[in-house]
Design a protein around this nucleic acid. Structure first.
Lengths: 300, 300
DNA sequence: CAAAAGCGGTGCGCAATTTGCACCGCTTCA
DNA sequence: TGAAGCGGTGCAAATTGCGCACCGCTTTTG
């Protein structure tokens, strides 16, 4: 759109780091680009770039402008979505930043259900840890975040929270599989696999172990991939720890899942959220509320 | 600003009701304006005006676009305000929609106090009843609303609520002036002046009278002007009813104010609010919070 | 230490876009 | 039934924006 082209210029210069490089990227001359950014700054009344010997860099005012640009883009997309909605055409795009646990079962089912009714709506699903997800929201890179134990920055607006007790994954022939509920002390004697502290499961495990014992969580394999961990326990007969929403409880996948006793380890919290104060595009907002409903049903 | 000029065109056409009239207002030819609005619609992908024989009118998509335009304008003003704030220059404009009761004492003092510290900030104070104030917020015509008993539309975000018992105004020689508190039944036998049902005072009085007696509020003079009513009681020795925040309690103005018993009439509520989800310009937001602090002190 | 390379900024001539003018087809209203 | 007012369009004029060449400056490099 025409009225956003000044914003394109600003963003291109930010990406390129200099006016000349940005001009090359945009297939125009540096002089034209230079004049456009100068006019923009003149109209705004303030410079937004620091002129450095090797290029330009945003100054604090420019940071504000950049955020404004992203917000304007997002708001215009929402307008288009709403207008399209009026015409009876259900179109739009929903972008979600979520934890790995949502990837195998929950989100595929929810997205398929939504798309069954609204074929025109497309989705992007990004795997993000709790810190990255919140950054995604505040840069308008994602509409919706669905993560465990987020940092709760001021910009994160919680739509729904559901409790998720940690489950232990193991082979069916593991002795612990006979128990309906597993104590923390029983796990520490067996080899286990776990993710890093970037992930909510590990944070909760570490906290619980520190509180109740003098021992530590010492995984024999540390991995970022929940999928990897699910498969690894089948080979070494180790233990893995995951949230139930990402698990198959039927045993059909070869592993058995048993809850960790909440006397030992606090349950995790799965947060559904969006950028505070943001009005989401029609499709995103509708899907957000479908997710909220589904999660509430899941918790009950 | 350049990137908002398409929005200027749209708003001018809306105001004028036809492309030709708008073109005249803008001192350009109708053909140029016509092409610009056509290009805008083409880029948006949807028409936003209905073409009628006598001009044009917004269609539902256009209504959405209009709201978007107002939001963009407001957001850009906020950006400029924030950037100005960075440069150490405190500038900006604060617009307030408020009930009459705030006009004589409360708001002048608050605005003067704010401007004593920030000379660059200007204000506009609009007298609005509870319905109009909320419309002002949602069209971005005002940043802040301060009214009694608003309708509470979905767009009205309450920042603070303080109780305001209704006071009776009378001449000092009125027999009721001797009482510390006045009962409703004592008022109904005397001539009184009151505003219409558009105003919170009258709404509360009507509700109370309906509940406790078979009589009705029958003012001898009905007026929209609180100032008029304050002066009228001095002439006919009638009663008037107002909220205390708009009254001089020292008696220096010639009238005496006594509270109506809360056993008879529910106290009013003064609401400080803004448009839900809107991020106010720096100056407006700062003044909003000064108001909140001052009102809390006033209530205590 | 000097030359080269890379940067933002500017004057000028030209090309692309936008505008004004004249005019069309249409509906409404006196 | 004609006049008036509306939105839309072809074409030439005017304005805007662009590329080119070049300046002054700082950093890098040999």
């Amino acid at each position: 759109m025409r009225h956003l082209q000044d914003f394109d210029v600003v963003e291109a210069i930010i990406r390129a780091g200099s006016i000349r490089k940005a001009a090359e990227d945009m297939n125009i001359t540096a002089s034209a680009l230079n004049r456009r950014i100068n006019r923009f700054e003149e109209e705004l009344g303030y410079e937004i770039f620091e002129r450095l010997p090797r290029g330009v860099r945003l100054n604090p005012a420019g940071e504000l402008v950049l955020h404004h640009i992203r917000a304007q883009r997002s708001d215009f997309a929402r307008l288009q979505s709403q207008v399209a909605d009026l015409s009876g055409v259900r179109r739009g795009h929903v972008s979600i930043a979520c934890s790995q646990a949502l990837l195998p079962y929950f989100l595929p089912e929810q997205i398929a259900r939504y798309r069954a009714e609204h074929k025109g709506v497309t989705f992007s699903v990004k795997t993000r840890d709790r810190v990255e997800a919140e950054q995604d929201l505040s840069t308008f890179a994602s509409d919706i975040a669905l993560v465990f134990e987020p940092q709760h920055m001021v910009d994160f607006e919680v739509i729904l929270r559901i409790r998720q007790p940690i489950f232990v994954l193991m082979r069916a022939d593991n002795p612990l599989a006979a128990l309906p509920e597993i104590r923390l002390r029983d796990c520490l004697d067996q080899p286990c696999v776990a993710p890093s502290e970037r992930y909510g499961v590990r944070v909760l495990m570490d906290a619980a172990v520190r509180k109740t014992t003098y021992r530590r969580v010492e995984p024999v394999v540390e991995s970022e991939s929940f999928d990897f961990m699910r498969h690894y326990v089948l080979h070494e007969n180790a233990l893995a720890f995951q949230f139930p929403i990402g698990l198959d409880m039927t045993g059909a996948r070869g592993y058995v899942a048993r809850p960790l006793s909440e006397r030992d380890v606090a349950p995790g919290n799965l947060f559904l959220g969006q950028l505070r104060g943001r009005i989401l595009p029609v499709a995103s907002n509708r899907f957000l509320h479908q997710l909220a409903t589904a999660l509430q049903a899941h918790a009950a």
